[in-house]
Simulated assay, not measured.
Amino acid sequence: METMSGALVYLNDICNKEDKLLLLIGTATEIETATQIIPMAAVAAAFERPFDLKKMVAQADGLLSTNMERTKLIAALDDFFEKQKYQKLHATQMS
């Protein structure tokens, strides 16, 4: 959990310092976990799985279009949380 917290703090810092957009993608629990560290005010959009890909792309496109002057970043936490789940499962199986 400490590694995840550190990664989320780092991600929040980068988005704030470099004026980047942050889009979260994950389950409701994953998004809730992320927003315990990253304030929702700093999140441009959050997409809960399962999601409608066309709607997500349209919303993300709209955000990026209206923020063209900003350096853009889409940060998907989905892969990060999947890695965490894999590591926990692997650690449990090794015990």
Rank of each mutant, 00 (worst) to 15 (best):
D61T: 08
G6K: 00
I31F: 00
K55Q: 10
C15H: 12
A91M: 01
A58I: 13
T27R: 06
K83H: 11
E18L: 15
A60R: 01
L63N: 04
A58R: 13
H90K: 03
N12C: 11
A34Y: 10
Q93H: 14
A44D: 09
A45R: 08
T66P: 11
I74G: 00
A34L: 05
R70S: 08
I37W: 14
L89Y: 14
K54R: 09
F51G: 01
D61I: 07
D78G: 09
L24K: 04
S5R: 15
A34F: 09
G6F: 05
F47N: 00
D19K: 00
I25Q: 01
A60H: 00
E30Q: 02
A41K: 11
S65G: 08
L11I: 00
E30R: 07
V57I: 05
R70L: 01
L23D: 08
M56C: 04
A41L: 12
D19M: 05
Q84I: 10
A58C: 15
Y10V: 09
L53A: 11
T27G: 03
V43D: 12
F51P: 01
I25K: 05
A28P: 03
A46P: 10
Q36I: 01
M4A: 11
F51T: 04
L21G: 09
S95T: 14
L8M: 06
L89Q: 09
G26W: 03
F51Q: 07
K20M: 06
S5I: 14
Q36F: 08
A60K: 01
V43T: 02
V57F: 05
